[in-house]
Simulated assay, not measured.
Amino acid sequence: MSKIPIIFEHNRGFVYNVDDYFKLRTSHRLVCNLIGVPVSKPRDARTFGLPAILSPLELKLAIENGIGVLVDKTVSFRRSPTDTEKTKFQQLVEQQTTELKLPLVEKRLDDFRKHLPQIIKGKRKKLLEKGIKESEINITSESLLIEERRKIETMKIDGLLQIPSECPLAKEFSTVELKLEDGDKLKYQIFKDLWTKQNVFISGGDAFGCDFLLYPGDPLYYHASHMVYILSDPTMKLDVKYLIRCCRLSVVVNKICIFAYENDNGEIKYQTMDWDGNAGNENYAT
């Protein structure tokens, strides 16, 4: 399996290729939030465009599992492009312009075909009025379509030109090692444990005041079913008010509350909390 190149910029990992983005989501259950789209409202990259950004935890997991490789193209983009690269890029722009223009050309030709009988009749009438004999008039549908296509293709048509988010030219790059902050190490262990053992999607829980949100399927189609809170020091006495606040919030938003921690043996453990009134409720957290 070829590794997905993840571009290292501003100490974060970005994906600019839409196929790579969907592979990360569909094959590897990595959310990869789109830039400018709220975490709580994920959308389709084909609608909103890229780039997509991987959280440090997603990035670390992708590298460790051989899913992706973190690359740095900074040096490559700082140098001026060569004449060959300029020519190649211009060819790609012209090709894209032609491809975007083609549907409009075909649409105008379809409209032209619908009115072809009236157009032929009008042209024939004008020629007769100019004194040209009927036997000398040779107007065919094929010749008119060829002439109309040539005219449309040479017209300057205003339109939106897509700016490629991924550089279409090959660029030199170097690989980069990712180092997590000390405060993220436990968070990553829990993230990795959930991703490995549970068939769920995991996103940040900032929108709900927790550490993680767990989804039974792609967040594009499912609501989160669980809220995960990380206990950095489970040996300390858990504040009752904090416990009640977390549980009550999970009930209000119809999700299951989970506390995650690392025990003395270095194992990741989970404690699920629920209100008695929700026990046996089949519609709870669905």
Rank of each mutant, 00 (worst) to 15 (best):
V71G: 02
V71Y: 03
D72F: 10
D72M: 10
D72N: 14
D72S: 11
D72K: 08
K73W: 05
K73F: 10
K73P: 08
T74V: 11
T74F: 03
T74K: 03
T74E: 05
T74M: 01
T74W: 00
V75C: 02
V75R: 09
V75M: 01
V75G: 03
S76R: 06
S76L: 04
S76C: 12
S76F: 02
F77D: 12
F77N: 13
F77M: 06
F77L: 11
R78T: 09
R78H: 04
R78Q: 11
R79S: 15
R79A: 11
R79N: 13
R79Y: 02
S80A: 15
S80T: 10
S80H: 05
S80I: 11
S80F: 14
P81H: 01
P81M: 13
P81E: 07
T82A: 09
T82E: 08
T82K: 12
D83A: 14
D83C: 12
D83E: 15
D83Q: 12
T84W: 05
T84Q: 12
T84Y: 06
E85D: 15
E85G: 07
E85P: 07
K86M: 08
K86H: 11
K86E: 05
K86Y: 11
K86R: 12
K86I: 15
T87N: 09
T87V: 14
T87A: 14
T87H: 13
T87K: 13
T87Q: 07
K88I: 15
K88Q: 11
K88G: 10
F89E: 03
F89W: 04
F89R: 07
F89H: 04
F89M: 10
F89T: 10
Q90F: 08
Q90S: 06
Q91F: 04
Q91I: 05
Q91C: 05
Q91S: 10
Q91V: 06
L92S: 01
L92E: 02
L92G: 00
V93L: 07
V93S: 02
V93A: 08
V93E: 00
V93Y: 03
E94Q: 13
E94A: 05
E94W: 01
E94N: 07
E94C: 05
E94M: 02
Q95W: 07
Q96P: 07
Q96E: 08
Q96V: 08
Q96S: 13
T97S: 04
T97G: 00
T97L: 02
T97Y: 00
T97A: 04
T97P: 02
T98H: 01
T98N: 06
T98F: 00
E99M: 13
E99H: 06
E99L: 13
E99D: 05
L100E: 02
K101G: 00
L102M: 07
L102V: 08
L102P: 01
L102F: 09
L102R: 06
L102Y: 09
